[in-house]
């Protein structure tokens, strides 16, 4: 019963997501093969659905990987500086190589994100007496320093105003032809699933992992690369969406435990479902305009995060 509940819910949300939008679209129009309806579907609705699902899956899996590497349940791209580093990377790309296309900018974002998360992991490992909340606190501070650097840089190049606009997560720009980078998340998901066992072992700490014959450093770096690719791909196509990677794995772990092999598919589905729900909400709130998903997911995720903090660290 509960096994089928989640996939059903997900499918339902996908269906609703296809139906809702600025222009009315009915299934009857589709069935009668109206060209307009088909165009809306293939050029805008389907790409958007794909981007939403992939982003949701990717971000929540990123959260899981980071949580295993840092061994802290409150770590995710937004609380380890990765998200802010990716933004900074795009900004630098825009000023250093104004001609670079989306791919070039993504490479910058990727490199910055990877370096920033490596530095973060190094800092956290140097601190001997950490606790559950100190680690994300340091990550948030680190992120705000990175974004202060980004603002400094943007202000000098007069792109501060526009930067704030386009770095906010927003799926309304997703149309056929400018979102395909997001498909990079697919192989990442597959790789993560294949390596799930290793990431679980990684989460037991360096000593345990090594004694179980795992190359700790290599696995951790692989994990960070997977995260960097996902984060940069989502930031470049839809913008920053905080807290999804944090909230979803935590809520799933509450109900299903932490064996990754078993919970990864559930985490992935829940991530997609959460983003779809937030997106539908954003499209309905001030219809026919829409609220960027960075705001809806940010609010929902942030409030859930607050609840988790209040509840989990009693």
């Amino acid at each position: 019963m509960s096994r089928l509940l989640l996939p059903t819910l997900l499918l339902l949300l996908c269906g609703v997501s296809l139906m809702v939008g600025a222009s009315q679209m009915s299934w009857s129009a589709l069935l009668s093969a109206s060209d307009d309806a088909w165009l809306t579907l293939t050029a805008s609705r389907l790409p958007r659905l794909a981007a939403l699902v992939l982003t949701g899956v990717g971000l929540s899996i990123c959260g899981v990987i980071l949580q295993q590497i840092v061994r802290n349940r409150f770590v995710e791209p937004a609380t380890c500086g990765g998200l802010d580093a990716a933004k900074l990377g795009i900004l630098v790309a825009l000023t250093v190589l104004p001609g670079a296309g989306a791919t070039g900018r993504m490479l910058f974002a990727l490199v910055f994100c990877l370096l920033a998360s490596l530095a973060y992991v190094a800092i956290i490992r140097r601190i001997r007496f950490t606790n559950l909340v100190l680690v994300p606190v340091i990550g948030l501070m680190y992120g705000s320093v990175l974004s202060a650097i980004a603002e400094f840089h943007a202000y000098r190049h007069n792109i501060l105003q526009s930067m704030q606009g386009w770095l906010l997560g927003d799926f309304s720009r997703v149309i056929e032809g400018n979102y395909e980078i997001i498909y990079l998340i697919l192989p990442i998901v597959v790789l993560t699933y294949l390596y799930a066992q290793r990431f679980t072992v990684l989460g037991m700490g360096e000593g345990m992992a090594t004694s179980l014959g795992l190359n700790y450093a290599a696995t951790a770096i692989l994990g960070l690369v997977l995260v960097a690719v996902t984060v940069s791909a989502t930031v470049i196509t839809v913008g920053a969406i905080p807290f999804v990677g944090l909230v979803v794995p935590n809520l799933v772990a509450l109900r299903y435990g932490e064996n990754l092999k078993r919970t990864l598919p559930i985490v992935a589905m829940c991530g997609a479902a959460l983003l779809l729900a937030c997106d539908i909400l954003g499209r309905l709130l001030i219809h026919p305009y829409e609220v960027p998903i960075g705001l809806t997911a940010g609010s929902v995720g942030g409030v859930l995060f607050l609840v988790l903090i209040l509840w989990k660290c009693k």
């Binding site: 909340v133 606190v137 948030l140 960075g294 705001l295 940010g298 942030g302 903090i309």
Partner: peptide
């Protein structure tokens, strides 16, 4: 726990910022 309050404050500020936006 100081850090718990700190984390609460930081996240609360972020959430309030999102509402403001």
């Amino acid at each position: 726990d100081v850090y718990r309050l700190l984390l609460l404050g930081l996240v609360l500020t972020m959430v309030l910022g999102t509402f403001t936006q």
